[in-house]
Design a protein around this nucleic acid. Sequence first.
RNA 1: GGGCCGGUAGCUCAGUGGUAGAGCACCUGACUUUUAAUCAGGGUGUCCGGGGUCCGAAUCCCCGCCGGCUCACCA
Length: 496
Amino acid sequence: MTARLESLTQQRLEKLAKLRSRGVDPYPRRYQRSHTAQQAAALFQESEGKGGSLPPVSVAGRIMTHRFMGKAAFLDIRDGSGKIQGYFRVDQIGEAKYELLKELDIGDFVGVTGSLFRTHTGEITVKATDFVLLSKSLLPLPEKWHGLVDVEKRYRQRYLDLIANPEVKSTFLARSKLVSGLRRLLDERGFVEVETPILQDMAGGASARPFITHHLALDRDLYLRIATELHLKRLIIGGFDKVYEIGRVFRNEGIDFKHNPEFTTMESYEAYADYNDVMQMVETLVSSLAQQVLGSHQGKWGEQTIDFTPPWPRITLRDAIKKYSGIDFEDCPDESSLREAMARINLVAPDLRGRGKLIDKLLSAHVEPQLVQPTFLLDYPVEMSPLAKRKPDDPRLVERFEAFAGGMEIANAFTELNDPVDQRQRFEDQARLRKELGDEEAEVADDDFLEAMEYGMPPTGGLGMGIDRLVMLFTNQSSIREVVLFPQLKSRNKEE
RNA sequence: GGGCCGGUAGCUCAGUGGUAGAGCACCUGACUUUUAAUCAGGGUGUCCGGGGUCCGAAUCCCCGCCGGCUCACCA
């Protein structure tokens, strides 16, 4: 801590000692408040028209600003519901109490009792008859006018960000609303919410590198899940016809404005449904959520407006790539011919191996950024989708779609592969990718899952949605760090 | 991981080689309806860290740490 900050804290510690010496407990146990700031204001507004007198109220919160004027003072007090002003006069609370008031600082918590009135300037205010210190603060809050701007500090000390920047709090309230709304919508549709293991023997269900941890008693490495898919499908096999999980998954990849190493997904699986059913569900869910969170089917996205009203346009992956890059990947049946075609449009990816990865590259480079309005891309090459069922008329493609909006992928879904013989073959193909092309993200074979499928799995439509990105879309935030309360940052400690 | 930009008071920022600054916050005093209260006075600092150049470095050079943007990879 710097010398200067220490002296500020020292001042506050001295005030604290002074308060204690006058018999004040700076950290009392509880406070009986009668109203939140918002409730108190509402109470006053309701009674205002009718006349008559109101009983006194007790409110509590953090002192945000104060204006002392000799023998009277105004304090702005903020609680979780909002802000209310307190008015303190020597002749109302007495000399002794008024002296104590002067020992309070911005940042302290207080409880204030008094009657509600409106000041000359029109602000609803508690005229204090008494107050009590609820908690003394020792560190100064960020400045009231400019707030807290330093991005690093905002993320590392999110509590200060929440205190200083009200719009940050509203972003996370929107997130909470979205998640609870999603849960309610799924419950209403008869989906059962479940929880599956985060610590796993092997991390499957997606292409990504996992985090490794170690179990001491078992003396073996375990992986943090990269998806909930394979366990949820086991539950479909076990007889849950509609299941979902909203949960954290972990991927050991780079960190940037779209990626946090831990993020939240919603995956759902519905027996007897296919990807067409799921597509309809996605557009219905997202547009209802927009209605619930934004109060409209439309949302601002930078300079643009995104309209979530269903139905969303549906275009095959092949046509989309053809449209935005000019390349028809059907004309390039193997990796080298596709690589050549891509080189002709100056898209080189020397680090990528395999035709599937190259198609994915075309998608992310040329198509994805164009898809601002909600759009479904369908029918992906089988080599990109080892867990999806093939198209009946074209075994090179699978019944898979991804939903895009705001230039980001927000959902990924398919008719689930339920043919155990084909699934085993696909795992083997993935193992070959891993071995021959060094693709560390290739799907790992999960024999236990295969065995489950061999007992018989009904036709199933599965879905994965990125909750963080949905929140970004709904709150018009361009960085995932703005929708994750405590995003991952490098350690500030210099020790290795 | 690469490139670019940034790190100065508690907060927000100015300061391109010559005595470290402003506003807010804080401290002292005045003020009984203020609200970015006002008025008078007070600057409280590891200029991110470590080296180097120079008579002299917040400023120039090198190395490192942290962050932002961007590219690569991923969702």
